[in-house]
Design a protein around this nucleic acid. Structure first.
Lengths: 187, 187
DNA sequence: AAATGCATGTAAGACGTTACATGATTTT
DNA sequence: AAAATCATGTAACGTCTTACATGCATTT
C-alpha cells in the first residue's frame, strides 16, 4: 500500500467529495463534466462549483479514492478520472450509512415573506408572485428533463420526480396565497 | 453624521445581516433571542448561528444600522439592540427590492437517492423511508407552531403554511414512492 | 447542589462562490 | 472571423459551523 492511501474506513468524505464519487460512479469522468451534469440534474437540491470540484478531485486522488490519467482531445488538456476500489467502497459506505442526512434550505423569498409585515399588503403579494415565477421557471426546466430521465437510471429519475412534486407544491401554494391575499385586499 | 455612518443606499447587507435587521424589526432585541427565534421559526428555510450573529451585530452597529445599549438583567450582561432610522430604511429597501432572490437547497437524502443505483433496491427503499422520517419530524414540529402562529403577524404565519405544504408534499411523495418500489420488488 | 436556561463571545477551520486567466477546438 | 464550447485551474473573498470558554440566574 503506498503512502498516499488511507484506510478507506477512516476517510471522512467532504460534501463535494460525495458528489464527485457518486458522479464518477455514474460514469462521468472529468471535472468539467461533473460540473455540467450537476448543473443539469442535482442543482435543485445540491450544487457544486469548479472552485470546489478541481481541488477536491486532487484531494480524492491523494487519498487514493480516485485515479486520474491525462486523455487529451487533440491538443486540449483533459484528465479522465475513475473510482479506485477504495473509492468505490467509500461511496458504498456513504450510501449505506444510516447517519442522519443533512437537509438545509436557504430561501430568500421566504425570508422576505417572513418579514413582510414591515411593508404593505400589495408588496407582500408581489413577493409571493415573484417566488412563484422563480419556482415556475425551475419547474419548467425540471419537466423538460423528464422524458430523457425516464429512460435512464432510476435514482436520478426519482429525484427528478420529487423535485417536480416539491416545486408543484410551492407553485400551488403561491397561487392559492395570492388569490387569498387579493381577496382580502379588496375588502 | 458621525464617521461610522454609511450612506444607507450603499450598504450591501450580508445574508445574516438581513435576518438580524428583520428580527429587530419584529421587536426581537438580543443576539440570544435572534438565535432562538430563528431556530423556532425560520430554521426550515433559513438558519443562523451565534458565530455569525454576534459579529454581525457589531458590524451593523459600525455601519449605523442598529444601535445597542447594555441592559443587564441583574448581574447578567445583556445588550439590547434596536434598528436605527438608517437600519429601518435598509431593511425596507431590501424587502422592496425586486432583485432575484436566492433559493438554495442541500439535501443529502436526495443526493443519496440520486446515486442509489449503485446499491440494491432494498437500500433505496430504506433511503426514502429515512427521508420521510426526517420530513415527518419537521412537519410535526411545524404543525405544533400553527395555533400560536395563527394569532401572530401574517408574514411568519404564511411562511409556516408554506413550510407545512412543502413538507407534506415531500412526505406524500415518499409514501407513494415507497409503495411503488415495494410493489416492484415483489415482482 | 445540580441542572437548566440566559447571555455573550471567539478561534479555527471547513466550505463555498465569484471572478478571472489560459488556451484549444468546434460551430456559426 | 467571431462566438461558443471544451477543459482546467486558482486567488480572493465571503460565509458558516463547531467547539469551546465564561459566568450569572433560575428552577429542580
Amino acid at each position: 500500500m503506498s503512502s498516499s492511501d488511507s484506510d478507506p474506513a477512516e476517510v471522512q468524505l467532504t460534501p463535494t467529495g460525495k458528489v464527485i464519487l457518486g458522479m464518477l460512479g455514474l460514469g462521468i469522468s472529468t471535472g468539467y463534466d461533473v460540473k455540467n451534469f450537476v448543473d443539469k440534474t442535482t442543482r435543485h437540491f445540491w450544487a457544486a462549483s469548479y472552485g470546489q470540484i478541481y481541488p477536491e478531485l486532487r484531494r480524492l486522488e491523494e487519498q487514493g479514492l480516485v485515479s486520474g490519467r491525462p486523455e487529451p482531445t487533440g491538443g486540449r488538456a483533459r484528465t479522465v478520472y475513475n473510482l479506485t476500489d477504495a473509492g468505490r467502497s467509500a461511496l458504498l459506505r456513504w450510501l449505506q450509512s444510516d447517519a442522519e442526512t443533512v437537509n438545509e434550505a436557504r430561501d430568500e423569498g421566504m425570508l422576505k415573506l417572513f418579514f413582510s409585515d414591515a411593508g404593505g399588503p400589495a408588496e407582500r403579494i408581489e413577493n409571493i408572485r415573484s417566488m412563484r415565477a422563480r419556482d415556475e421557471r425551475t419547474l419548467a426546466q425540471l419537466r423538460s428533463l423528464e422524458p430523457h430521465a425516464a429512460a435512464g437510471p432510476k435514482g436520478p429519475y426519482l429525484t427528478l420526480q420529487l423535485g417536480i412534486a416539491l416545486h408543484e407544491a410551492a407553485v400551488n401554494w403561491c397561487e392559492a396565497a395570492e388569490r387569498e391575499l387579493e381577496k382580502e385586499e379588496k375588502e
